[in-house]
Write a protein that binds this DNA or RNA. Structure first.
Lengths: 203, 203
DNA sequence: CTTGCATGATACCGATCGGTATCATTCGGA
DNA sequence: TCCGAATGATACCGATCGGTATCATGCAAG
């Protein structure tokens, strides 16, 4: 039974084992960049984790910075998918959509256990405003705020921009607080909090 | 006029010129770590900026990690001083104290122009939970939350812990939003927001 | 005046960094 | 079947990293 060797490493590994190198590298990058930080992980470590070599990594991405940008593009796509999901699940119910977005962030709070939001962390690690990953981050933040504002407007809230800004505060503050672990019961507090914002902005 | 040479470099530099090396190093570290990130600044660069040498740096701090911890201790002391100030300025007026703390954070929002909160950034750059600077960060966050909770309790708010947690969300979320620049008029929004929290938790 | 300590300058250490070059192997499509 | 592209392995490059050792200077207290 030769294929039994696939279960040698548990979890993610065997699922990834036979993917093309580009996918394996992105998978390894996601894991390592998030766990150790961008500047704390060398390209050799990423290649090793992906079961390939530095040469293959540079053939596909050309630069470590480009790899970082590609990784953040994937993370951003997860958020886009989450917004799509809540819009599909509660059509014509913008208030439910907003609560759905908050619930999505609450879910990520446990997933990203104590290592925080990849975008916030990357922003701290990439002070260079010309870094290719910065464009990805800014585009993501702008898109998220735009969709949130649209939901607030559709819900008939007074001052949709203000409501969306406050909700953004709360979402990002919750992720930071979860990272440093000083505040407990963050998920519940965040939901309560977003509800309060919605109520206050309702005529 | 020999002392006229002191005004050769504008701003901070001449004030620092004749301080003992330890102070100059901490001053340079504060500037560089915040601007470029901890991992983005080498000890040689800190020593150069301080007008001294690596040898002197290691004589005083022993380790780069220890220097980072000392730097964060100073930043934390600034926050402690801010809390002391609002308590001294509005004794027996806890609501005014809380608003004063929020105003202090609003002030820092422009000071730390687009480079974010040193604690949040350092947390992203130091994934190692045993890093000496982590203890400084955790102690700071815990102390800040404790004092904020005490103010909320003194103000007679229902659920002081909840109110303090929500205010913490807002303060940290505002700093992150200021860093990525996606949200405008952050200062006003933060003040509005904290007021709303106080109102909602008032019986 | 002299002694002693902190400082500044410099060279050096091994390790690791991002990135490149070379070459044998493998594998899928014509 | 054969060919060409993609892959894996490995060695190498210059630069920089955190950290150490050495030594001459300068300054301040005895």
């Amino acid at each position: 039974m030769p294929e039994a060797a696939e279960e040698a490493r548990p979890g993610r590994a065997n699922r990834v084992a036979k993917l093309p190198p580009r996918e394996r590298i992105l998978d390894a990058a996601e894991e390592l960049f998030h766990a150790e930080g961008i500047r704390g992980v060398g390209v050799q470590a990423v290649a090793d984790r992906a079961g390939t070599t530095k040469a293959a990594l540079y053939r596909h991405f050309g630069t470590k910075d480009a790899l970082v940008a590609q990784w953040l593009l994937i993370v951003a796509a997860d958020y886009v998918a989450a917004f799509d999901r809540v819009e599909e699940r509660w059509p014509d119910e913008p208030l439910a959509q907003i609560r759905g977005v908050a619930a999505f962030v609450v879910d990520t709070l446990s997933t990203i256990s104590h290592r925080g939001c990849p975008f916030i962390n990357s922003l701290a690690e990439l002070p260079d405003r010309d870094h290719p990953a910065r464009q990805v981050i800014e585009a993501h933040k702008a898109r998220q705020l735009r969709r949130l504002t649209a939901m607030c407007a559709a819900a008939g809230l007074t001052d949709p921009e203000g409501a969306a800004a406050e909700i953004t505060f709360a979402l990002e503050g919750a992720q930071v607080s979860a990272q440093n672990g000083s505040v407990d019961r963050i998920g519940e507090r965040l939901v309560t909090f977003v509800d309060a914002v919605l109520v206050r902005h309702t005529a």
